[in-house]
């Protein structure tokens, strides 16, 4: 088994350029290609501990972020390619790294349906996994990053993947996406945060990704049973609180946060029912990260499962 960081720097950049860099990421293999410096820098910083798959393995997602041809070079534009075709508009080279990460999310959001997928960060402590669904801006990534820096294991910043009929979460650990003020918040929260390149002026503002696989078990592929579902919401104006939610409301809200609940039809309903019946559901309103992490550390039931 070879890790990306074990490649000699020259070999790494050559393989990335020629698109011969298949990485094992959760249950998938992504093959990466790029001829852009910020992308090489980002992958080097954030994916060093990922395993390189064997050359003859089946690749799930072949992605590239490249600047091709004279026109793109002159304009400083690059494009995301999935299986050689470009599903999006071109973007400025400065935003390339953020775009690669979004493109990689998009692969799973659109093309994967063997799991019930929620738009959620998932974290675990011991065998205690927590699903945190949230709309963009709810503060789930910030909280996820802070937990990752406080001894929790990050299972995913973007997708909670539940095999239908189970209460398990399948880890698909990739860097955590931090936006705007969150970047400084996380830098001040811990000096251990390892951040990739800044992408400026994207449609979501400034974006930086944080290395997420810093826990000893980060690359353990086995799934973990979900014990709690927490709907985090960042709010400066409200008192901080952790409060129980009714399961029936949580069902509807989780379905709303799902990428493929309606696509899976009856299977989706049954999968969601099985999941919700087995987890405790909470709202978490916070503005102080330290308080939020302490509250998570003290979740009922967690101590027994450490």
């Amino acid at each position: 088994m070879e890790l990306l960081k074990q490649l000699a720097p020259d070999t790494f950049s050559q393989r990335l350029r020629s698109g011969e860099l298949p990485l094992r990421i959760g249950p998938y293999i992504y093959n990466l290609q790029s001829n852009l410096a910020p992308v090489a820098e980002g992958i080097g910083t954030l994916y060093g501990d990922f395993e390189i798959a064997e050359p003859d393995e089946f690749v799930d997602y072949k992605v590239a972020l490249v600047c091709n041809g004279v026109l793109q070079r002159l304009r400083g534009q690059a494009e995301f390619l999935f299986d050689n075709s470009n599903p999006f508009d071109t973007i400025p080279v400065d935003q390339a790294y953020a775009f690669l990460e979004w493109g990689m999310n998009w692969c799973v959001s659109l093309h994967t349906n063997e799991f019930l997928k929620l738009h959620a960060a998932t974290v675990s402590r011991g065998s205690f996994a927590v699903i945190m669904p949230g709309v963009p801006g709810a503060g789930k990534s910030t909280l996820c990053a802070a937990l990752g820096l406080s001894g929790w294991r990050i299972l995913s910043d973007e997708h909670a993947m539940i095999p239908p009929g189970s209460t398990d979460v399948v880890p698909v650990c990739r860097p955590v996406s931090l936006k705007n003020e969150s970047i400084q918040v996380i830098r001040s929260f811990s000096s251990n945060a390892i951040l990739g390149p800044l992408s400026k002026e994207t449609h979501k503002g400034i974006v930086a990704h944080m290395k997420a696989d810093t826990h000893p078990d980060s690359h353990d592929a086995r799934s973990l049973p979900a014990q709690a579902m927490i709907f985090p919401r960042y709010s400066r104006d409200e008192p901080q609180r952790l409060s129980r939610r009714r399961r029936s409301d949580s069902f509807v809200l989780a379905a709303y946060h799902s990428f493929n609940y309606s696509l899976l039809c009856e299977t989706g309903f049954e999968a969601m029912k099985t999941l919700i019946e087995s987890v405790d559901c909470y709202d978490l309103v916070y503005h102080d990260l330290d308080w939020a992490v302490k509250t998570m550390d003290a979740l009922p039931g967690l101590q027994d499962r450490q």
Partner: peptide, 21 residues
């Protein structure tokens, strides 16, 4: 087919079923 390969086809079948519904 290997389940790792067929899951991509299965996903396409599910998307098609959804479009029909």
């Amino acid at each position: 087919l290997s389940p790792k390969v067929d899951r991509h086809f299965q996903s396409a079948r599910l998307i098609h079923e959804k479009q029909k519904r």
